[in-house]
Design a binder for these strands. Structure first.
Lengths: 218, 218
DNA sequence: GGGAAAGTAGGGAATTCTCCCAATTGTTCC
DNA sequence: GGAACAATTGGGAGAATTCCCTACTTTCCC
């Protein structure tokens, strides 16, 4: 039986090394290489063709989602096992459409990670139990699981306005920055709220940060 | 030579296990126990009296900062080595005043962590290099390193209101939640803006997230 | 050419936010 | 006890926002 060849992607060196140390205890798993950001992950995945990429979603610059899409486009056979800090349902639904082979949380224990890797290696789909039950709950309660990304329904102009809103600008400031009337800025904002289904302005900031539309340290 | 006895605190089991796996490779270090949140960390620290607590700052519920203060109060001899995801200068200044013995980032590599642990065990103070140079830059450029925390100037009630604001509640919603009038909620909010010097509501959300008053995945 | 979508602009009303102020309570300090 | 202060609680006025609308222009696609 051949070993499962893995590429470990996480921007935190300490976490990356720790996970690799955990994986090394298992004979059926071989860590091919590691990567610290999205770009490096894509390069190494395309070059080394691992069986599985263990992908941290929250990476600076080119994120895990973008890297997943790029790798899947270049080589659909490479399986992606998402390693995330968050169990945000919307976010998960979004990722599942990107044809990832599994989703596991950093809250999981080491044996869960090993199980996930083995399941994905066998060609199965792995979903960490707490997430799975949460999605099932949604399904049962008749709230259709949302798979389309509301953010992508925004026009370019609306995305631009959302960014400025999230950065703390008022409608008047946005109007000046974009050289449009205040009313127009308001109209865009109204459409944004409508399309995203997020009502108070403050909540939009959280959305923007979660989706990395703006940085918190700005 | 006796081993350095360590308590590892991190809410992410995978990260915790990974770090423990890394530490196990070193004979002079012994992992006494692990903890997944602030409360558990305090309990085990007081009970087991480790030489060093390797403390993740971002933990749900009772955070790492609160746990640090509690442990230092109960037993000042226990050394705290902060393990953080962030290199936010304001945040670091704040932590340094809490008498921690070291500050290292998750971006650091394993050998850095070992160096840090050994330095702290010897009674030295460890500051991860990129942070140290950043603080020195601030010092040299005459911008006095801020040690007072504007957030701490807020009253308990104001902190409560700030959290609700950041979570996306309107003044009316806050009034209902706290069982006060809308006017009072507004007054608190005014004082918060005044004390923190942050004007638009949206910017306060960013502040709250940066200071981990709220989590982005809530 | 016709239709759909995006960007632009505005009116008007209701709500919310921001900024000024005051009353009450409790604490601390002469 | 009384002065001084902080904390909490509110009011009023004006600015900014959100939420209803409608309308025009451009662009792109069939």
């Amino acid at each position: 039986m051949s070993k499962t060849r893995i590429l470990v992607a996480d921007d935190h060196a300490l976490v990356r090394e720790g996970i690799i140390a955990l994986l090394k205890c298992h004979d059926d798993i071989e860590v091919l290489a590691e990567a610290a950001d999205g770009r490096e992950t894509i390069e190494k995945a395309v070059k080394l063709r691992p069986d599985i990429v263990l992908m941290d979603i929250a990476m600076p610059g080119l994120g895990g989602l973008e890297a997943t899409l790029a790798i899947k486009k270049a080589n659909p056979d490479i399986k992606i096992l998402v390693l995330s800090q968050y169990d945000d349902k919307e976010y998960i639904s979004l990722l599942l459409t990107a044809k990832v082979s599994g989703y596991i949380l950093k809250h999981a224990v080491g044996t869960d990670l090993i199980s996930a890797i083995r399941a994905v290696a066998r060609g199965e789909f792995y979903l960490y139990s707490s997430i799975a039950s949460s999605l099932v709950d949604d399904y049962l309660s008749n709230k259709e699981v949302v798979v389309e990304d509301p953010y992508e329904r925004l026009t370019d102009r609306e995305k631009q306005v959302l960014k400025l809103i999230a950065e703390g600008n008022t409608h008047k400031e946005i109007a000046i920055l974009l050289n449009i009337s205040v009313k127009t800025a308001m109209a865009h904002f109204s459409n944004i709220q409508e399309k995203l289904g997020i009502r108070p302005r403050a909540s939009l900031v959280k959305f923007a940060i979660r989706r990395r539309i703006i940085q918190i340290d700005s």
